[in-house]
Design a protein around this nucleic acid. Structure first.
Lengths: 216, 216
DNA sequence: CCAGGATTATACTGATTAGTATATTATTCA
DNA sequence: TGAATAATATACTAATCAGTATAATCCTGG
């Protein structure tokens, strides 16, 4: 590049270029962290995949761990966003949960690499970032628990232990990061449908007619 | 130690001592790998926790990665063992599944550190060990799928997609490694009961009266 | 009580790699 | 055109650590 032209008004081309560079760096980092792990991936390797060198990466990111933080934070933030949106809907508990599970599943599948990296590399996060992300996960957990409690009180859901039930439900969906691949034979929509059906039934709710009816 | 006395007949004290040393080394490795991760844990650190030094560890294990292999293999082997035992029972699909989920959950909780380490550190396993463990996981998956298929054909279970259903069920149980701690407030027995209830219901089977009846 | 193998420690090597100091190039504005 | 500055590269440093060569011990049988 060269001297940056004076900013005209807010967003200009150079901000976009810089943002693009950051995204490309992050993208290659995701690939390598996902396939080889965070620690075994050298910053040189990330740069090389971009046809650049290490200082290029360090010009755009303060440190290697910042790449990891950004990756881990993104996945969690997206999940929290759709979950918070679902519980805020003006619907009954079952409809809200259905929406929550469907959207949450979509996030886990779409960002399965981010989620996998987060689960694997949690320990390599700096204290402060780990705390921030843990707080988001707590929020997710609270939303889910509150919704399950609401549904149970309304007589829609049936289960014994709220804390465990909520962890089990979270596990059903989250765990998809461990088996989902781009090449997976079943389309995402169908996975989400199946997930909704299983979650609802595991909570003693009758799934709506649309899902869980026919056998394949 | 010193010169090893002549072996008397099979098991003698020295074999037991050697086995104990290996176990203690492995135990400390589990603690450190679990809390800090495999790569950030130095062999020196493992030795230090035993009041010994690095060559002590290398005398009993060929390499650092052998520790990891042993840890990962153990958890998976135990899980496969109880699952294979459950599906081999001479019972109906629902009873077999109940047993499978209960015992599988117990293994995951009892060995949650091993399971957590395996999930995190898979990528650091040497090719050959990774393949051996992957084969065990495939066996687990096949057992579970076969049992679900059997139950569906018998009209006991209802679900759409066999492959996805089986992954979801496996996830409900396995994912406990991510949230279970020794300090967890709910006793293991109750977690296992809850797990059984949720799995059975998620498959459209009515849980037996004993579980899932009362609300707390 | 000594010989010899089993066991453990001290001290080193070699490789990797995050991060940086410094040089270089590219681009724009005056 | 020529500062001035943004962007990128080259080349280095410092730290870490797996693994090992070698030395020191320690037990046990004879």
């Amino acid at each position: 590049m060269g001297k940056r032209p004076r900013a005209v008004e807010g967003e200009n081309l150079w901000d976009e270029i810089t943002a693009l560079k950051r995204e490309r760096i992050l993208g290659e980092a995701v690939e390598l962290f996902y396939r080889k792990g965070y620690l075994p991936t050298s910053v040189d390797a990330v740069a090389e995949r971009l046809g650049a060198t290490k200082p290029f990466v360090y010009y755009h990111f303060k440190s290697k761990v910042d790449l990891l933080v950004e990756i881990c934070e993104r996945g969690t933030r997206e999940a929290l966003a759709v979950i918070a949106a679902a519980v805020a809907l003006d619907l009954g508990p079952q409809e809200k949960l259905e929406r929550l599970v469907r959207d949450f599943t979509a996030v886990v599948l779409d960002h399965h690499k981010l989620v996998a990296i987060y689960f694997r590399e949690q320990l390599n996060l700096p204290e402060e970032a780990a705390a921030r992300i843990a707080a988001m996960r707590r929020d997710i957990d609270h939303h889910l628990r509150a919704l399950l409690a609401e549904g149970r009180e309304a007589g829609v859901f049936r289960f014994d232990n709220l804390a465990v039930a909520s962890l089990i439900v979270a596990g059903m969906v989250s765990y998809a990061f461990a088996w989902y691949r781009e090449s997976f034979s079943v389309p995402r929509e169908e996975i989400a449908d199946t997930m909704v059906a299983h979650v609802l039934r595991s909570l003693g709710a009758e799934p709506l007619a649309r899902v869980g009816a026919a056998q394949r």
